[in-house]
Structures are given as C-alpha cells and as structure tokens.
C-alpha cells in the first residue's frame, strides 16, 4: 500500500534503521503495528508514533521535517510526544494521566519507557525494574528501600506499582487505593477489619506510624517505641522515661516496647481487647 502524503512507509524506515528496529519487531507493539495493524492509524507502522517522515527519509536522515522524535536532544515537546502515546493508551490505567502529578511536572512517557529496546522483563521500561526506573527521580525513596527495615522491593517481590499508579490516580500520592490504609490492605488484608476495638490512627492512615518506603526502625516505624506511642499517649504508664538500664521501665524499651503487651495494636476483635492486649 502506498504511503499517505508526507509519509515514507515502513520500508523506507527499515532501510536505515533495521538494527534498531529488530528488537522492536519482536515486541508486542512491533508485532501489532508492523504485522497486524487494526486501524488506519496503526497501519502507519513506524510513523504511527514518529509522524510523517517523508522529508526525513528523502533527505537521507539530514532533515527532521514533521517527524516526532524521542531522543534526549529532541525538539519535540513533551506534550506532543505524550500525545502520540495517548492516542492508543489513554484508557484503563492511564485515563487520569492528564492532570496527574507526573504530567504536571512535564514527565514524558519515554522518560520511563523505552519502546524500541527496553531493559525490563515487563512494562517496556528503560531500566531493569520499576524501582530503578522510579528511583531516577525519587532518590530519597530509592535510598529508603535499602534501609534496615523495608518491604521486599530490592528483592523483586513487589514494585513501586504495587501501591502507586504512576500514570495518574484519583487518590493522594498516586496511590492505587482510595486511602493509604486501603492501599496497604491490598496485601495486609488481616488488618482490614472492621474490628470490635479500632485504633484510630490505623483507620486514618498507616503512615501515621509507618514509613512504608523504609526505616532504620523495626517494622518500618517512623520513630522507636515507646516514643512512637507516646506521641499520642503521653500519660500512659506515667509518661515513663523508659530507660534502657532501669528494670522498672525496661519493658517499655526492650524488644517490642509497648507491643510487648499491646500486641493487637492494629485492632482487636476480642471483647477483652479494649487496650489491644488480647
């Protein structure tokens, strides 16, 4: 089929870019666009993403013409580049991309994804894992997941996307769940309740006590027990100083601190569990 006006056609592109295109042709996107396009747009093949490239081809690659390019030095704006991707990918998880924190920060789809040759096993990412990709900008979070107490992101048992939708969300912090707690409950359903005895900060946000990205404290706690609990319960047990060398108060500091007794701190369904001790 003869290319439309301004378009060069796939064969022209492959004349010069065959080596670069080889891994792309094996990918799902390559198979679809180059092998079995469903729509007129998809039938444009390379140019469904790169736009009309006849000028570029005719000039032997010297001129860009109307082409849309994605390299680091491209003069195509981020908005124009993203618009190409969104032609096909604006539904499902990306419906809320526009207006999202990343879109507002002028993040390009190709800042994270590599269409022609990707490094990741899934997701066509520029780096080998989601965490490595997100860590490009979120250095503090990348460092946090290496802290003493962390969730198994480094061990590749979960990803940043287990909790966040980087493509846009109706929720705070691009969370998948409507609240922090709902997000955590997607793996920790045992803490979902509702319980007979609820602990208010658990309901309002797990992040009141935990730093989910990592911490130097056990259980990813923000501060050590009993200080963590004393932030809200200053007079419990006399507002104890909890010395590390004093037998009378050591129980508040050693091992699990307050949780040595208040073990069901996320909520208890035991009628005698008003203080989360049963």
């Amino acid at each position: 089929q003869k290319p439309a006006a301004g378009y060069a056609g796939n064969e022209s592109c492959l004349e010069c870019h065959k080596k670069m295109a080889t891994p792309f042709l094996e990918s799902g996107k390559g198979q679809l666009l180059m092998g079995r396009p469903r729509t007129e747009h998809e039938k444009k093949g390379c140019e469904s993403c790169h736009g009309p490239s006849k000028t570029h081809a005719n000039s032997g690659g010297e001129e860009k013409g109307e082409m849309i390019t994605y390299s680091r030095k491209t003069t195509t704006t981020v908005a124009d580049r993203n618009a190409v991707c969104l032609q096909c990918h604006e539904k499902t998880a990306r419906t809320l991309w526009k207006g999202s924190a990343h879109e507002a920060r002028n993040v390009a789809c190709t800042d994270c994804h590599a269409v022609m040759h990707h490094e990741s096993e899934r997701g066509a990412l520029k780096k080998s894992t989601v965490a490595a990709t997100c860590g490009t900008c979120h250095a503090q979070k990348k460092a946090a997941i290496a802290k003493y107490s962390h969730m198994p992101l480094g061990e590749k048992k979960m990803e940043c996307t287990s909790c966040h939708n980087p493509h846009g969300s109706a929720n705070d912090k691009l969370l998948n769940g409507v609240t922090v707690a709902e997000t955590c409950f997607s793996c920790h359903q045992e803490k979902r309740g509702p319980f007979l005895w609820e602990h208010t900060p658990v309901i309002e946000s797990c992040a009141n006590c935990h730093d989910s990205h990592g911490s130097n404290k056990e259980k990813m706690l923000k501060v050590s027990r009993p200080r963590l609990c004393q932030q809200c319960h200053p007079t419990a047990h006399g507002g104890s100083v909890a010395k590390s060398t004093d037998q009378a108060t050591v129980r508040f500091a050693y091992n699990k601190g307050c949780s040595n007794c208040h073990l069901n701190i996320h909520g208890s369904n035991h009628p005698a569990g008003a203080f989360f001790t049963r």
């Binding site: 803490k191 979902r192 369904n269 035991h270």
Partner: peptide, 9 residues
C-alpha cells in the same frame, strides 16, 4: 490466656 487473631473479613 487466649489472644485473638485477625478475624475473617
């Protein structure tokens, strides 16, 4: 002593 564990939900 009996300690309750997470109930079904």
């Amino acid at each position: 002593s009996l300690v309750s564990l997470a109930p079904d939900n």
